[in-house]
């Protein structure tokens, strides 16, 4: 296994994180880090514990043991809204825009509450409009989520997560279910975000995305980290091939290749 010394300042440090559900260890003794302005992918077969790690980092679950530090400060066990205000924004695997709010209102909500110090309604709205333009929803501000396409709903999720001005952005399978063209657009969006200085941890099944945009990849299997490193090295790791590529050959999660 490769252990890179962090080339840049470490933003997120996950340390020996463990989470049980009943007797089942969903995440066991997992450590990794994300450096500032880095894009790191969490990959692994279904049930490997990727989304559980997101839920732990964003405070939806409390870890049984281990630590999570954001910029050196421990955030493990804090409540989700506190963690959000400390600078973690996330999207959900199953898209969950607020259905009775317009696109703009969805994004304004993130800008209004997700950060310290609080901003005025006017500022929040101005920023939300900017973010909607950034993700490509500039002409759909007044639309309701249910009338939008799947890629547009994912754009709402991303814009809303960005509205909290996260130091760290967690993207949970934002590319899955997209056509190849839409995937390319989404990749461009993520790279554009990185240019603006964002640090991104993402869960992704689409290998083209993982290989194309990640600085590093963390591979999980049965709740444990089995490999970590630059994408081109990880895919040659025998452990990863054994645990993960077997599934890839089945093709279920590989529409884009």
């Amino acid at each position: 296994m490769r252990k890179d010394a962090p080339a840049k300042m470490t933003l997120l440090q996950v340390d020996r994180l463990t989470k049980h559900f009943g007797g089942l260890a969903a995440v066991h003794d997992v450590s990794f880090h994300v450096g500032e302005r880095e894009i790191v992918s969490l990959i692994g077969p279904n049930g490997a514990g990727k989304t559980t790690i997101f839920n732990l980092v964003s405070g939806v679950y409390r870890p049984n043991s281990g630590d999570i530090r954001l910029g050196g400060e421990s955030i493990a066990g804090l409540r989700p809204f506190d963690i959000c205000r400390k600078g973690v924004g996330r999207t959900f695997q199953i898209m969950q825009p607020f259905p009775k709010m317009t696109v703009l209102e969805n994004v304004v909500t993130g800008a209004l509450f997700g950060r310290k110090p609080k901003v005025s309604m006017k500022t929040a709205e101005g920023e939300a409009v900017e973010l909607c333009r950034l993700v490509g929803l500039g002409d759909k501000l007044k639309a309701f989520p249910k009338n939008l396409t799947v890629p547009d709903q994912k754009r709402i999720e991303i814009a809303r997560a960005l509205a909290v001005r996260p130091k760290l952005l967690l993207l949970d399978e934002v590319m899955s279910g997209l056509t190849p063209t839409e995937t390319d657009e989404a990749i461009r969006l993520v790279l554009k975000l990185r240019e603006t200085g964002a640090t991104i941890l993402l869960i992704e099944h689409v290998m083209k995305v993982v290989m194309g945009i990640s600085d590093r990849v963390v591979v999980l299997h049965h709740g444990e980290k089995i490999s970590e490193g630059p994408p081109f090295l990880v895919v040659d790791d025998p452990k990863v091939i054994e645990a993960y590529l077997g599934k890839m050959v089945d093709g279920e999660d590989e529409p884009a290749c």
Binding site: V60, P80, F81, G114
Partner: peptide
């Protein structure tokens, strides 16, 4: 749950 994650 989403509201919570958005800082509310």
């Amino acid at each position: 749950d989403v509201a919570n994650v958005l800082g509310i």
